[in-house]
Design a protein around this nucleic acid. Structure first.
Lengths: 373, 373
DNA sequence: CTGAAAGCGCTTACAG
DNA sequence: CTGAAAGCGCTTACAG
């Protein structure tokens, strides 16, 4: 009579009742204590409040019955759940995978990390956000937020922004030093004598891409580099290869000696096409990227690229959020009406240094020479 | 005094109280009705139970106050939340992105889809699962489950498995017809006259990879094809390229005329290396993949591959889950003690047909000739 | 150290 | 059609 769910170990016939949920009351009865005591034990607040004997009894009963604290009841009583929601426009790329992993590492078991799922490349709609917030997450992590998204966000609990390049917000945030990165890149190319370069951008319209391009172009100009051409394609090796193949004859005529790509993925396409065209990299053409994705180390030649520390971005954001959450607890418990100490009022804006990783796509023997600058 | 959260529109000073949560009781007071009536309105159960006038009043009050039904309270009262949790070992690959998208499309706004986040390539630990389940999700979707994971799963609510290749389970599931796919592939290569091939596998140890390989080898043998070599690398273009470059001299001596890859990503590496080595594809070497990732259409030559309908996998699983959920509701409401109709007892095991997409990597002009077979 | 009680915010029989 | 009341499962003052 029940819809097929997961297999029952024993073939329970059509009585089909779901296994009864084990509640704190049941544990209490079994242990011969009150539900309050059970709660104290499960939440670890026993110090000076529960006798060792009762703690043992409760734990025993918990194991016997296989009790798990109900997330809904618990969250409702505490006023918030223990889930942290990570909102991001692009879940499926290796760079973001590292970011996620960093967050996960930092958040640990204290909170349950869940990813909001949206249409590829989209931030969740206001309606979805309202839905998410109604779950009373302990905190929110938002990657690459658009300005519109932030504007529509109702003022709720702790939130940390990741990779907000170009978007204004007062919320605590963790960012890459894209300007510094672009500067290093421009310097590197200028030092190598490049004076005419092309820029291959992404079409997603992400803020970070815009910032990368603008920062590079600015610093390039300062260093006397002409950015004579710009094209954009989707973030796809094939699309980038095509675009480069089509553009190259023209670029060559313009004297382009280097192609700067807004992400390594594009650069892979360029490298690939260059190999097919038997263009000597870096002698005839230098290629650079952003991100330092895994493949950049093993491509041939290796790709010179701005390493944006993805995992560290996730970790730093996780750390910030944990601090906010701890602060909240403090505020609720002890500091009502007072001011928190400086540490919690500053440090809300973390910027991570990027590094330029020099490899064979700009310098012969770049890898051998040691990599990072 | 509160930790910095998100920016307040107006600079609320250190009074700092969170904006008071708007509750159903507040809406009720404003509208001059009972909380029960508010609930009826928000859940759309007004038919014959709430006057048009009161509906209007309540809706008005809701808008005025910006009321959103609290997910925790609501879920606790109903006995389950409206979230569906998608558990998967590999969130960050373009194939899975399509699966997610399919699920999202099907689930729609009825439920809130959230992704469980685990270490890359890992299923969540039993502890995490218990945590997730304590949120009382309306349903669970599990992609590429390992046998161990399923065994450790407590018997809970509705669940649908995706891509369970090789894993036994009684739970409703949606799968690809990998055997049929492997057969088509073997036939295709045999028809082209290949009799000696190499197999390039992934090292993740995913069940689906094992099944792909075994099924292909079986059918290949039947068709008189010798699979003379097998290698495995991580799922990375560069790694695959390296592996191929290293293995090719030997393979060539063995008379290998085709490389079958367990996923397109590997095949990209092979194609790339083949171009560098000026190996004529497909004349000297045919290459095939599995998945039909986006780039397979634009690579040069295009990649002959088994198209596994990823989005359809997600949609079918979403559909199954919705049916389970609907059945549950029925069971709870009307059918206690009776049997559900056949439709709900069968059809719990959906198999999706795969197709072989023939492109230039096995047949000259493969694309032009129409693609699918 | 312990338990009875109130409360978190909602939904759903139930009696009118 | 409407509202008072009980209940979902927990946590947290509070009184002992």
């Amino acid at each position: 009579m029940h819809p097929a769910t997961i297999p029952r170990p024993d073939n329970v016939p059509s009585s089909g009742a779901r296994p009864a949920r084990v509640t704190a009351a049941m544990v209490a009865a079994r242990a011969g204590v009150s539900a309050a005591t059970v709660s104290l034990v499960t939440s670890g607040k026993t110090a000076g409040r529960v006798s060792a004997e009762n703690i043992a009894k409760v734990n025993h009963a918990i194991n016997e019955l296989g009790y798990v604290v109900d997330g809904l009841g618990s969250s409702l009583a505490r006023g918030r759940s223990n889930i942290v929601i990570l909102v991001a426009p692009d879940v499926s790329n290796p760079f973001f995978a590292k970011v996620i992993d960093g967050v996960r590492t930092e958040i640990g078991d204290a909170f349950q990390l869940l990813l909001s799922v949206t249409e590829a490349g989209q931030m969740p709609t206001p309606a979805v956000v309202r839905n998410l917030l109604s779950l009373r997450p302990a905190g929110l992590l938002v990657d690459a937020p658009s300005a519109g998204f932030l504007a529509g966000l109702p003022a709720t609990g702790p939130m940390v922004l990741l990779d907000t390049a170009g978007v204004e917000s007062e919320a605590p945030s963790v960012n890459f030093d894209l300007d510094g990165a672009a500067l290093m890149l421009a310097d590197h190319l200028a030092d190598l004598g490049h004076s005419t370069v092309a820029y291959l951008d992404g079409t997603t319209g992400t803020e970070t891409f815009r910032v990368r391009r603008e920062a590079f172009c600015r610093h390039a100009r300062t260093r006397g580099i002409n950015v004579v051409a710009q094209t954009a394609t989707t973030i796809d090796v094939g699309a980038a290869a095509d675009a480069f193949a089509r553009a190259w004859p023209q670029w060559q005529r313009q004297g382009v000696t280097a192609v700067v790509c807004s992400t390594d993925t594009h650069a892979y396409g360029v490298l690939q096409e260059a190999r097919v065209a038997r263009l000597a990299v870096p002698a005839q053409l230098a290629v650079t990227g952003f991100d330092d994705l895994p493949y950049s180390e093993t491509s041939s030649p290796g790709l010179t690229t701005v390493r944006l520390p993805a995992a560290e971005l996730g970790r730093a954001a996780g750390r910030q959020l944990l601090r906010l959450l701890a602060g909240e607890e403090l505020a609720a418990k002890e500091l009502v009406g007072e001011e928190l100490e400086g540490d919690d009022r500053n440090g809300h804006r973390v910027t991570l240094e990027s590094t330029l990783v020099v490899r064979g796509s700009t310098v012969d023997g770049g890898v051998a020479q040691g990599g990072q600058v």
